[in-house]
Design a protein around this nucleic acid. Structure first.
Lengths: 228, 228
DNA sequence: CCAAAAGTGTTTGTAATACACCCATGA
DNA sequence: TCATGGGTGTATTACAAACACTTTTGG
């Protein structure tokens, strides 16, 4: 039984960014071709015949937004027969974590505009992209409970308060400052830097930390647990 | 930029079964067409143009083995450009849990033979299927720690010892019999049946239990945690 | 010296762990 | 009555959770 397939394959990315002001944001692009022309959508596009999914994602993100990715992981493959009006098009969705302060958004080819949108203020989105974001958010919320991937959303140096605020946003609830610090430091994958935060807007300058990837990977091998 | 895609899409399933004698097994089929003719492989095949992935999986499993699925979940999509000698063929992998005592394997169309193979005694497998099984096993091991999907591998009635033995196999370590029972019963989603195991080979007959899906789903909504 | 945010320890409750003897059955 | 596997309770330990005052800085 040989059936001629007409299925096309896209990759789409849910790119998460974090800033103290806006909280968790997602990168959206405004479509400049049909279908759903001028609607907001996830960055992504058709996979080339000879490239891996990850290469495809990175190419699209370069083309559409010019960003630097800290973490990239496959999320889920969406393939409902009616999800795209152009015919059978499946989407292999990835999610990515970036530090938005690291670069300026620079839309290039397929997208009219690339923009950060706070996760709680999403506009109407093309295709099933809202569903994809919802799944990515759930995955992220689960994942940070047993792997410290939250660090990928921060810059190289950060204060304990910034880290705590990030987790507060990710978990959707507040945590006790003292218990949080105790727990995080007990893992031993934070380096205490010999410098303090410069020019706080108000109050005492905070100790700065950085993430020690070497120590983290050593810990990870013996199985980490990370409930905060 | 329009690029003509030539990517074909398959679905493959890692079907887990459990028996007291063999432990955790995976369903394999012997290929009767090239490539990798006469090699063992995962059940699966090309997705039809108008069917969902899950429908495709179920159709393939019906055709190739005639089995009844208790649990089915998407695992990962494999798409390395060189993973199939026929060209660019990606595989959307699912994993499934079944109760093997529930049916007899009945190979039909594409497969010469369908057979259970203990997870620790896998033969050479076609394509990247060994990698797929490894990922499925890891996922299963993680998942049973926060959701009681292990029950899908058992029959309707089971003794505490059978359940414990299942978890021992899944987790790859032994657990304390008393603590295990205490923990499991404390969740309250087991029904104590008014009957005992008949004709034990030796020793005292065991109390039988069944899984109470209603209570489980109620619990699940308020977030279950299940470390054993 | 005042406002603002950072830093820090102790107590209490709860859940995980470790551990050993008696019970019911079939041969 | 013996061998085999099933059933059960308690003490200890470790970790999570709750909680408030002092310190440093800039204005």
């Amino acid at each position: 039984m040989l059936i001629q397939q007409h299925i096309r394959v896209t990759v789409d990315a849910v790119v998460f960014g974090y800033s103290a002001k806006q909280g968790i944001s997602v990168l959206l692009i405004k479509r400049k071709i049909p279908p759903h022309i001028f609607k907001w959508a996830l960055p992504g596009g058709f996979v080339h015949n000879d490239e891996s999914f990850e290469d495809g994602i990175k190419r699209e993100l370069r083309e559409e937004a010019g960003i630097t990715i800290n973490y990239l992981e496959q999320l889920y493959t969406f393939g409902a027969p009616e999800r795209d009006p152009r015919g059978r098009i499946i989407s292999i969705a990835y999610y990515a974590l970036v530090d938005p302060s690291n670069f300026k958004l620079a839309p290039d080819t397929d997208a009219e505009a690339a923009q950060w949108c706070p996760i709680d203020e999403l506009p109407f989105l093309a295709f099933d992209h809202k569903e994809i974001i919802a799944l990515a958010q759930e995955r992220l919320r689960n994942k940070i409970r047993y792997e410290p991937i939250g660090f990928e959303l921060l810059g190289k140096k950060f204060s304990m308060a910034e880290l705590e605020s990030l987790y507060t946003h990710l978990l959707g609830r507040s945590v006790d400052r003292r218990n949080f610090q105790k727990k995080i430091l007990s893992f031993g994958f934070l380096k205490t830097l010999p410098e303090k935060q410069k020019h706080p807007q108000q109050g005492r300058p905070a100790q700065l930390y950085s993430f020690d990837e070497k120590k983290y990977h050593a810990l990870k091998k013996e199985g980490i647990f990370f409930e905060v």
